[in-house]
């Protein structure tokens, strides 16, 4: 009985992952909406699929047996968030503050009426 439940759990995880992948693929090929809407949609679907695989395939749960695994997972998630969001934030900010190219400087001077 328990074995059958496990098998069904796997099938459910597999089918929902396929559906999520196909859905993300279809959304990426839409041209009607603004890019940011599509990109956040893809990001959201990836996140959902990540959670689905973590629960159905990697058997992450809040049961007493898996509690330690869950805590290690959560601390990893915090480090990953800091790493990725922090890098993107800092580097974009640096890019925005970079010295502009000579071409752009000339354009700027011209736009300021011969400074």
């Amino acid at each position: 009985m328990k074995e059958k439940k496990r098998f069904l759990q796997y099938c459910l995880g597999y089918i929902s992952c396929i559906l999520l992948t196909m859905f993300a693929y279809l959304i990426a090929n839409l041209n009607y909406y603004h890019n940011w809407a599509i990109i956040s949609g893809i990001g959201l679907l990836a996140f959902i699929q990540f959670i689905v695989q973590m629960i159905f395939f990697l058997h992450l749960s809040n049961s007493k047996k898996d509690r330690l695994k869950l805590y290690i997972f959560l601390s990893m998630a915090v480090i990953v968030m800091i790493l990725v969001i922090g890098s993107v934030w800092i580097m974009n900010s640096l890019n925005a503050r970079m010295m502009p190219s000579p071409n752009n400087v000339n354009k700027y001077i011209k736009s300021q009426d011969g400074l």
Binding site: T21, A24, A28, N29, N35, I38, I42, A46, F50, L58
Partner: peptide, 17 residues
């Protein structure tokens, strides 16, 4: 496979958009 979800979404799908 979990890592690949993100490669597919971030590199391929978002790159395509």
């Amino acid at each position: 496979d979990v890592i690949w979800i993100f490669i597919f979404s971030v590199v391929y799908l978002m790159g395509h958009v």
